[in-house]
Design a protein around this nucleic acid. Structure first.
Lengths: 331, 331
DNA sequence: TTGTATGCGTTATCAT
DNA sequence: ATGATAACGCATACAA
């Protein structure tokens, strides 16, 4: 009992062309083969509309041409941008991408990782917040924004430089007393360096600054309380605010509106990430822009590069500043 | 020459447990097996940290537990939302998701589709703008927002009802003369029904209306020209505008600002899709909200349901209205 | 109930 | 240079 309307296989092609299986394989893989055979096989392939089954290929080669992307979600435009560009970078190299939205679920993250260790995919690119993720020694893995272990390369933007740049920009724009706002401090990851960079920038420019760092689960309202406490006679005592992400900046901007503080006249705000609505509109706030296409390319390159005896433990890519209406540029 | 530090296989487990290959397979698949054997096999599995190779499984079963999602990009939050929720719906059913960002590239879309016809994935969910996409008869496919053929189910929100709802809302909110703005008219797809629904709503509520529909590649500036032409003595002659998407609405809002028209005082604006920044902030404009989680669930359900003799050609899911500061709600 | 053997589609190692 | 054949990891029909 033969399979009937199934997909044609190499065997079918061989029979159709009247050649042996191995010959078809060679033609498919571009190995040298007699010209007359080539033609016949290619015609048969055309006629049957044959295509290789890459899973069977993978079974032999222990290679699937598939990479998994672990990422919390798609709602945050920064994550979405990353997913998109990594997809493109993989595609350029003929790799498929398995999207694994982990929704910050540690168990799910671990499950995805485990899945991979059994050659289901050739490697993982992961932006994960799970501090005790178990990754086997020999699993190709590239981390984004968080160093997981010395053997696993981590790719991030230059967060320190970004923080510094934010401070310098605020100084250039005439600020005297600024604030740094951050939420989610429990995990040590690369974005944490934004704080240090900012402090550094403030010090070198003689900016006085204050920090407000919320714990992981803390309600955003605490920032509103913090801001309110710094209002005297209706005026906020800061003339510049650096928010650790555009996401936070967006919320802070809403608060400032409620508190009747004008942006950028009374207080200037700089965020981080470089988010634009629909990817092509204006930046949602003045911001430190992450080089997402470059980050994506670097991740893929590091992951797929096999003949690299030693992989860089941490790669930092340069950030830029972009105006987004929440600062008072003068030029 | 044995493979060395590779992933353990069933054979390894069998040897470790001192049983036959078939027995291990049965244990793995939950088939009845002698209790003492079970234990031994399970211990061996635990010890070796064995997991089935689902690609080898797929090779046998002609099933990969993988579904491909064809979608233009991730920058548009609506697409990102869809990808996210479809990912979740698939995950619930233990399916993996291959993300295929097509970037509106017809050739790429076709390539992805072709890939699937050779049992690389079990099915496709596709939001595609390619009018002449070739899909084989027996390929499991569910389309979003565009009917591809009578045999292929299409899932969309109730676009007609959405258009109608927009008109009714504008009428309820006191509008007398409204406009409908749309871009991209070349392809017949479900969202096109928003226009008809809107007209219908306008007529039933006695609203006078005007339409401005731009061709596919046309520059957005044409809308600005259109609006400018409808300004007399500094006042726009419309008091309500329905934009075919939130994306367009966002651009229109910027234009209105430039033209010194106040929203919502002078003119109220309603968009379509239900986009929120970061997924959890306010809606970017008053809008007709698409039920994205339900759309996702329906797509997956229709795609994976095998014992369904006849699949619905078109499924429309109910929309809702949400306030987003660009209308003048009074309650 | 347990073990054995065959085949899924492909690649690679052999003889020819 | 080409054709036959074994092997990849698993499932299953069949034999023990």
């Amino acid at each position: 009992m033969k399979k009937e309307n199934s997909v044609p296989t190499m065997k079918d092609v061989a029979k159709e062309a009247g050649v042996a299986l191995g010959t078809v394989s060679k033609v498919v893989n571009g190995l040298p083969v007699g010209e007359s055979y080539r033609i016949r096989v290619e015609e048969a392939i055309e006629k049957l509309n044959y295509q290789v089954n890459s899973y069977a290929q993978g079974l032999k080669a222990n290679k699937t041409y598939t990479v998994a992307l672990l990422i919390p979600n798609m709602q945050n435009p920064f994550f979405a941008m990353l997913a998109y560009h990594i997809n493109l970078s993989l595609l350029k190299r003929k790799y498929r991408m398995l999207l694994c939205s982990t929704d910050f679920d540690a168990a799910l993250e671990q499950e995805y990782v485990t899945m991979v260790q059994q050659n289901k995919v050739d490697g993982i690119i992961g932006l994960t917040y799970n501090p005790n993720l178990v990754i086997e020694e020999n699993t190709p893995f590239v981390a984004i924004d968080r160093s997981i272990s010395p053997q696993i390369p981590c790719v991030a933007c230059d967060n320190f430089a970004g923080g510094q740049l934010a401070a310098e920009k605020l100084a250039d724009l005439g600020c005297k007393k600024v604030a740094f706002l951050r939420i989610g401090s429990s995990l040590t990851n690369e974005p944490n360096k934004r704080k240090a960079g900012f402090e550094n920038g403030c010090l070198s420019r003689g900016l006085s600054y204050e920090m407000k760092i919320l714990d992981d689960g803390a309600p955003l309202e605490e920032f509103e309380k913090f801001l309110t406490e710094h209002i005297y006679d209706g005026r906020l005592s800061f003339d510049g605010i650096f928010c650790v992400t555009d996401n936070l900046a967006f919320s802070i901007l809403k608060m400032l509106r409620r508190l009747h503080q004008n942006v950028p006249e009374d207080v200037q705000v700089i965020g981080f990430d470089g988010i634009r609505l629909f990817g092509d509109q204006d930046y949602i706030c003045s911001t430190i822009v992450q080089p997402v296409p470059e980050i994506a390319e670097m991740c893929v390159e590091l992951l797929l590069q096999e003949n690299m005896t030693v992989k860089p433990p941490l790669v930092c890519l340069p950030v830029t500043y972009a105006y987004g209406r929440t600062t008072s540029e003068t030029e």
